[in-house]
Structure formats: structure tokens, C-alpha cells
Design a protein around this nucleic acid. Structure first.
Lengths: 244, 244
DNA sequence: AGCCCCTATTTGGCATGCAAAATGCCCATA
DNA sequence: TATGGGCATTTTGCATGCCAAATAGGGGCT
């Protein structure tokens, strides 16, 4: 089930995250199947996968529905991811960086610095920033050497708006947006520095604050959807609703 | 019926956790199907579920194999669960207990106290202790009101030896086993007290230590399998190997 | 031994059949 | 009009058979 399943699952996941379906919609496997251009069997597999990811909920004998996320649930998930990443950098500091990872982090930080200096104004620059940012977070988790941490974080990151790639750029107040990026980059630099200095507690604290600020920005923008501009045209659509 | 899938998945999961298969064994869907007495379709669904749970790994076009857990991976997962539970009790303290949950916790603590007073010597008593212990941990997570926390913790808990129900009783040194239970119960009491007093940081710290001690006991026993006596005859078998 | 080719098995996927449950609809009744 | 009961349709849950492609396994050849 390598090629087609993965493809079908990805396609359905993208449609869900893009908000193609209203939350609460029942997904009939027949319509999903012909929608994705695959068989009922495969559609069922894909839906099962997304159910495990938490994007669908299944009621016995009644099929699956599109999960509705409340803002609180998203905020919870972001907070959990933050706590886990904080734990990751603490463990990375306690464990120490190997030479390869150290160089890799240095290179990513350099690229981020470069992008920041040029100014993150175009969509292309935004994409590049988001990519680098995601990669950096991945590396930090990797550096912890903790397998379970990686699993947990990636589970959270599959939820809408939770992933580090779901950055929000403030387009209304461009000055403000730039300030956020500068602060974010300063966090990155200090976190890596703390890890190198084996200051586990400091790395943890700074990462926790980093996550908190990021979460607050996201939630603020959720309440004011006009300014919302999700990187990679990913999530944030009808899946998330203020009610619960 | 969703009955059969759930049943087949549970059956296969139990066989995996019980160590019926050596790690690395390739699971052919045909043999799994007739082994469980279900169709190939259903066997694939069940295997897909267990793959998402992390008990199986799939290699494209080559089927799935039984995942081999190193002791480090298990220790990592236990540590992550501990951190998440610590976060849970902190949030529970910050949020406050509603009357129903407060009463429920009190009742569980009372039952645990009672069991402890009678002495946890028979298998039946051990089962009762494990049940109460699991319920208490579930309640604490529930009390946090954090949905993502519940999801993450349950994900970790599906791994062998990670669940709070995977308690280990020291049968070699009965005195030592009893001491551990007494200490564990004291932790429970103080954690609940801290939550009631809205002492988030204290609840968190104590829970982290509680988890750490529990993890250490488990890992110690892994290195000395003679004394290992997993409650509910659950996991710990061939799935876990010292190597990596 | 090393390599190649051929065969048998297995995976990945599709279409269909079927019983049971759920859904929807129509109509009778209050 | 609102309610509710009964019937037909749809949908789910699972099984079965089939097929192409990839893999694994087993000789035989050099």
C-alpha cells in the first residue's frame, strides 16, 4: 500500500486541512472513493489512517465525520507541542550535540539570518522561512535523541495549525510581523547556544516561551481571520470553529 | 460491524504485547487473517491500525514486521509520558477541580489506601491496585481538561511497558515492593493535595518525580527479568531487547 | 563462490456480493 | 399540523475472488 494509499491519504488530508469539507460532514466511503479516484477498499484505508491521525471521528455503524476542532483544542495541542519541544531541547542540551548536528544547526541558523536580512516580504521568502523554520524544529527534536518525543510531536503536528510549518504572517501590520520574526529568530539562536553550553534548563525555558509566543500569535490571528495567511495554503479553514 | 475490527485489532495487539511473535518477524496478511479467523481485508485493517500505534513497521512492497523496541526507546516513552502527566497535573491545578472530579479522586485515593492497608500480596489485590492506579492517572489527565494531552498520553500508553497499568511488582524482595507501593501512594496523595491547593508547580514536580521513580523501577526490572512480573500478563516479552 | 534467470509467493489494489444497521420517506393517526 | 410507525433505500462492515507488480527463493551456469 505504498504508492496509491499514501497518495490517497495525502490527498484526502489536504482536502480536509484546506477546509474543503465543513466540520461534522459525514464522509461516505463511496463518495470519497470516487472523489479520490480510487476503490472503496482504498478509500476505507485512507479514512482509517486519517481517523488515527485525529482528523476524522468514526461512530460505529454510522461511518466517519469530519472532526470539528475548537480553538481551545488547537491551543491545547500547540501548548503540548511546545512542552514536548521544550523537553527535546533540554534533553539535547543534557546529551550534547554531535559534530554533524552542530554544523547542520549552524547552517540553518545562518540561512534564517540571511532570509531575515533580506526581508520576508514575498511569498517565496515566506515559503523559504517556513521551510527553514520547520527543518530547524525537526533538527532540535532529532538532537534530543528521544524516539518517543519525535513520535509524539509529529502526531501533534499533523493537527491543523499545530505544525511549525503553519506559521502565520501578519499582513495587516507588516512592521509587527517583522518584529515577530526577529524575536523568533533570536529565540532560535539562544536556544541553540544554550544547548551548546549544556544549559538544559535555559534551553527548555526559552523554547517554552518561544512556543507560547508562537501559539499566542496563532490564536490571536484565529480570532481575527482577516489577517490570517497560512503558509503553504494549509489549514485553518472551516475545520476550526470558535464553538465547541 | 465495527465490532469485528476492534476485536481483531485487540486480539492481534494482545498477541504482539504478549510476545507471541519475535521482533522483526514479518507478518503476512494471509497468515494473520487465518490466525485471527477473519478475512484478508480485515487483517489488513487491523495491521494498519497497529502500524499507526507503532507496534508494527511497514516497508513498502515488503509488508510489515513486528517492531523491536530497545530498552532506551521504552525508557524514552515512559519519560515522555511522565512529562505529559506532569504537565497535566500542573494544568489541573491551574484550572481547579470541579466538584465531581474532586469527589472521584478522593474516592480512588481512599480505595488505594484501603488496598494498601490490606497488603498487596495476592494476584487479585495486584489487579485491583493496577486498576485503581490506572483510573487515578486517567482522572488526573482528565482533570487537566486538555484534549491534546489525553491524546498524546494514550498514544504513548499503547506502547509496551509504558502504560500505567504495566506496573511491575518486585517479587524477589517483597519488602522492597511494598515500600515502592507506599511511596507511590504518598505521591498520589500529595499530587492531589497540590492540585487542590492550586500549587501547579508542586504538583508538576511531584508527578515528574513519581514518573521517574516508576520508570526506574521498570527499567531496573527489565535488566533483571527474573523478578519481572507484569500486571495483567501484558507486555515485556520478546518485543523488548537490550540491543538497538 | 558469484551471478543470472526463472518461478512461486506476497503485496497492493480493484470490483463485487451480501447481511445488518441506519437513514429516509410515506402515510396513517391524533 | 404535529407525531409516529412501518417500509424501502442507502450505507456500512466484512468477505471473497481476481489481477498486476514487486519480491523472495531456488536452481543452474560460469
Amino acid at each position: 500500500m505504498s504508492i496509491a494509499l499514501e497518495e490517497a491519504t495525502t490527498a484526502l488530508r489536504c482536502r480536509l486541512l484546506a477546509g474543503d469539507f465543513d466540520p461534522g460532514t459525514k464522509l461516505r466511503e463511496i463518495s470519497v472513493a470516487e472523489d479520490l479516484g480510487v476503490s472503496r477498499t482504498l478509500a476505507r484505508l485512507a479514512m482509517s489512517a486519517l481517523e488515527h491521525e485525529g482528523l476524522l471521528t468514526r461512530e460505529p455503524n454510522r461511518g466517519s465525520r469530519v472532526k470539528r476542532f475548537s480553538i481551545k483544542e488547537i491551543a491545547d495541542a500547540i501548548e503540548v507541542r511546545g512542552e514536548l519541544e521544550a523537553m527535546a531541547v533540554r534533553q539535547a542540551a543534557e546529551r550534547g550535540l554531535d559534530a554533524a548536528m552542530d554544523a547542520r544547526l549552524e547552517q540553518i541558523l545562518g540561512s534564517l539570518e540571511e532570509v531575515l536580512a533580506q526581508g520576508v516580504t514575498t511569498d517565496a521568502m515566506r515559503d523559504r522561512w517556513v521551510d527553514l523554520n520547520s527543518t530547524l524544529h525537526d533538527c532540535l527534536v532529532e538532537a534530543s535523541g528521544n524516539w518517543a518525543l519525535k513520535v509524539s510531536i509529529s502526531q501533534m503536528s499533523r493537527l491543523p495549525l499545530v505544525s511549525p510549518s503553519a506559521l502565520i504572517f501578519d499582513r495587516k501590520d507588516h512592521e509587527n510581523g517583522h518584529r515577530q520574526l526577529v524575536a523568533s529568530h533570536a529565540d532560535h539562536v539562544e536556544i541553540v547556544a544554550a544547548i551548546r553550553a549544556r544549559q538544559g534548563h535555559r534551553a527548555e525555558a526559552r523554547m517554552r516561551e518561544h512556543a507560547f509566543m508562537n501559539a499566542r500569535n496563532k490564536i490571536l490571528n484565529l480570532a481575527d481571520p482577516e489577517t490570517m495567511d497560512l503558509a503553504r495554503a494549509l489549514p485553518g479553514g472551516p475545520l476550526i470553529r470558535p464553538d465547541k
